[in-house]
């Protein structure tokens, strides 16, 4: 039962990164687009992401609920020591979610649109940045439950070069996912070329920020290289991701919508896998070498049993409905295009 719950936890984090990530990325693309190009980005974004927008963000809620029901110590430790970036991320989520809907549902189109757009664009970048920082804090061994001054308990736990680099990397990954996604949705040729160029630029940015992550890790004495390349599984994951990146680069612009989406999803999954697998079952590394573990910090058996049951029953309802939603809007889009 415990492993079922862990499976669901990993899956919801993974899907949030992919789907929520593409969603954040759409705002990031608006940010890096020229002003006059923003309009199409916005329009395409709304048409393609609109129907699944709420559902994409449910994965975060599912992950949080699994954490606080099944792994309360992990949830509370993070809540206490990474409070500040969590609040920053929440503010980002509020600003982004509301601005997205407000700009579409405002009955009058006037200068307010510009205000919503600004808020939407900036919060689309800020939210994944802090998500990255929070993720980095779980492996940087800077969370110190025995700290007794404010800075080392609540600030240095997450504020360091490594965290910032991971934050930037997350932002780039989101932009990359969105660009890949949107390419398949555009039929007009000049537009398509523009997004292909954007996607390539995002790949380069992700590459650079990825390199920064390794440099920062080295600087902060985090043995990231050992973690990833110290075990054949990590190395295989990274090599697979690199090869698929090359294939993807070459397939861009040749109209293989499905193939490039799968490849992009595959790369991001491999990165997440390489970054988490090595520590399993540990999930939050604490200062001084101890860690919170998915196995030994789980709730009682009875709790895990009912949680797993609730998740299984839930997915029985959710998955078919979600697939049908995606399928029917995909099908109808095709009808409209032709």
């Amino acid at each position: 039962m415990l492993y079922i719950v862990i499976g669901f936890l990993w899956t919801s984090i993974w899907l949030y990164l992919l789907l929520g990530g593409a969603d954040f990325g759409a705002g990031i693309l608006e940010l890096v687009s020229k002003r006059e190009d923003r309009h199409t980005a916005r329009h395409t974004l709304y048409r393609t992401i609109g129907p699944v927008w709420e559902a994409n963000h449910m994965w975060l809620i599912i992950a949080i609920v699994i954490l606080f029901v099944g792994f309360p110590r992990i949830y509370t430790t993070m809540s206490i020591f990474v409070h500040i970036p969590l609040v920053a991320m929440l503010l980002g989520i509020i600003a982004r979610g509301t601005a997205f809907v407000f700009r579409h549902y405002d009955a009058v189109e006037d200068h307010m649109q510009e205000v919503y757009n600004r808020i939407f664009i900036y919060s689309s970048a800020i939210t994944p940045f802090f998500l990255g920082i929070i993720a980095a804090s779980t492996v940087s061994s800077n969370i110190d439950p025995s700290a007794n001054d404010f800075m080392s308990a609540y600030v240095y736990s997450w504020l360091n070069a490594f965290g910032i680099a991971v934050g930037l990397f997350t932002v780039c990954i989101c932009g990359f996912l969105a660009a890949i996604y949107i390419i398949g949705e555009i039929s007009e040729e000049a537009e398509k070329q523009r997004f292909i160029r954007l996607a390539k630029r995002m790949v380069i940015a992700a590459f650079i920020s990825g390199a920064l992550v390794f440099l920062a890790a080295h600087y902060e004495h985090i043995p990231l290289l050992d973690w990833i390349f110290g075990h054949w599984i990590g190395s295989v994951a990274i090599v697979a991701a690199s090869i698929s990146l090359i294939v993807l680069w070459r397939s861009l612009g040749r109209g293989h919508t499905i193939r490039i989406r799968l490849l992009a999803g595959f790369q991001v999954s491999m990165i997440l896998f390489a970054a988490t697998y090595i520590h399993f079952p540990k999930i939050v590394l604490l200062k001084g070498g101890s860690a919170l573990s998915l196995l030994s910090d789980a709730g009682t058996e009875k709790t895990m049993e009912s949680l797993a049951l609730a998740l299984l029953i839930g997915s029985l309802f959710i998955l078919p409905a979600l697939f049908y939603l995606l399928y029917s809007f995909e099908k109808r889009k095709a009808n409209v295009d032709h």
């Binding site: 609109g50 129907p51 449910m58 609920v65 609730a310 409905a321």
Partner: peptide
């Protein structure tokens, strides 16, 4: 939450499902 989460979490985990279905149905409806 550290103590209550595992005890009163059942309705929250079921609620997750209910929200999800709501979000999906809303996508269809809107």
């Amino acid at each position: 939450m550290e103590h209550a989460g595992p005890i009163f979490g059942m309705p929250f985990s079921l609620e997750g499902t209910a929200f999800f279905i709501e979000a999906i149905a809303l996508g269809f409806f809107l």
